[in-house]
Design a binder for these strands. Structure first.
Lengths: 240, 240
DNA sequence: CGCTTAGTTGATGTCACTCAACCCTAGTGG
DNA sequence: CCACTAGGGTTGAGTGACATCAACTAAGCG
């Protein structure tokens, strides 16, 4: 059940069997969330650390005018709030975008895992540092890339991140997000996202039908988006 | 000399005298950088951890068309690359924007400090998590705020961050950045930044002359920018 | 069958970009 | 002392990318 978590963390450090076992034991509670249900609200001090096992969730902030900015997509294997205990209250919310199953880990357990295994500790910190790197790349996109490049870049990122947890066989992956949700993450309007997606389709880069994206021309899409996978820091860690 | 560092970290955790001493001892090397000199280049694996003691530096990424996106302003007290050892090579560069003095700490020393003092460890991680929170807030700005709000927001942020290290007495602070550099950080053109700044001046929110910013109407500026200081997580940690 | 949600399309508006000129100040060198 | 230069800031006119508003289609579902 927690396989995506393990699959992801293996990119960060070469986990031993006992590491993986310990991690599995720490997931005390696994729960399903409905689409659009909040996992953690802004301002909250969550009792548990959460990780996505299935479905898509997002970090987001609301604006006074009712607008929403999505700050990150959380796909299976991603942690929601690994280090809340250090910062105190959440400065943003986490929302299950689609129906999702999410597991909870007591913060003390995380603490115990980290101090017991240096590799596991390293893997966990690796995950949060990669989150930060992704945030930086998004900032580049919003600041300096055109709308079509930015959307293309996001598709590239999702492809690689999902592939990292074996969820994108043959460059196809489930895409449960609506265009409006996509828009909230790239800072565009749904209407404009729609036009951009049509361009990408017309250029032969990808198909997107019935909740499934097929990337037809991966090198082309990446070149167009100016995508450099380095920021995902995904080279698989070799065994210890 | 390393006082800004200590001042900043005190917001993250209640450092003891010995913590502060240990930190001071770890700063083996202090060096001045010229304006526009790179501290660390993208792709590099730095030998040391760096922290800004004086001047302004920035994280940045270059784009194929020669454009630049600034990802963060590093002011006195900020670390440049605390955890490079975990991620491997830098996925962005660090550049001294003004003449700056920057200290270097061997990664092993950071390791030693962290394992020796839980509070210091906590303070260091607090600093990197705040960096991430700032990044999120910038993303909100680029995605959903108007140009004038976004620039106003940045002034608010600089004010509070500099105040946190006692560098903004009476709501005035040194502003050594050019409008072009500001533009690279908010994703606008220099020309447009200029017009926006003039608006902020005309509205009576601030003055900016001769490299010094004076915030005249702090509550007004913050309201206009939709600024909520929470994301800086700056409540001063009480003594242990 | 009507209702809802997501996607699509067109017409129009506007914010920020581009290009270009000009100003001001500080620094430099004759 | 003054001409010259260079960097940063300021201003204006024209353009374009993306937003806004509004209508329409298609698919799912009671």
């Amino acid at each position: 059940m927690i396989t995506p978590l393990v699959r992801k963390l293996r990119h960060g450090a070469p986990l031993s069997c006992s590491d993986e076992q310990a991690l599995a034991n720490a997931c005390v509670q696994i729960r399903d969330y409905a689409a659009r249900e909040d996992v953690i609200a802004e301002g909250e001090r969550p009792r548990h650390v959460h990780a996505v096992l299935d479905g898509f969730a997002c970090r987001y902030k609301m604006l006074p005018d009712g607008g929403r900015q999505i700050l990150a997509w959380l796909v299976p294997g991603d942690f929601c709030d690994l280090h809340v205990t250090i910062l105190g209250e959440m400065d943003h919310g986490i929302c299950a975008v689609t129906g999702s199953t999410i597991c909870a880990i007591p913060p003390e357990a995380v603490e115990r895992l980290s101090s017991a295994s240096p590799t596991l500790s390293r893997a966990l910190w690796w995950a949060t540092l990669v989150d930060e790197a992704v945030l930086r790349e998004w900032l580049v996109g919003m600041g300096r890339r055109s709308a079509d490049q930015q959307v293309a870049h996001l598709f590239c990122e999702l492809l690689l991140r999902l592939r990292a947890v074996d969820l994108a066989p043959g460059s196809r992956f489930d895409m449960p997000l609506t265009q409006a949700e996509l828009a909230d993450s790239v800072g565009l309007t749904p209407v404009h996202v729609n036009r951009v997606v049509q361009q990408l389709r017309a250029a032969g880069y990808l198909e997107w039908r019935g909740g499934v994206v097929s990337v037809l021309d991966e090198p082309g899409l990446m070149a167009f988006a100016d995508f450099d996978a380095n920021y995902l820091h995904l080279r698989r860690a070799e065994a210890a």
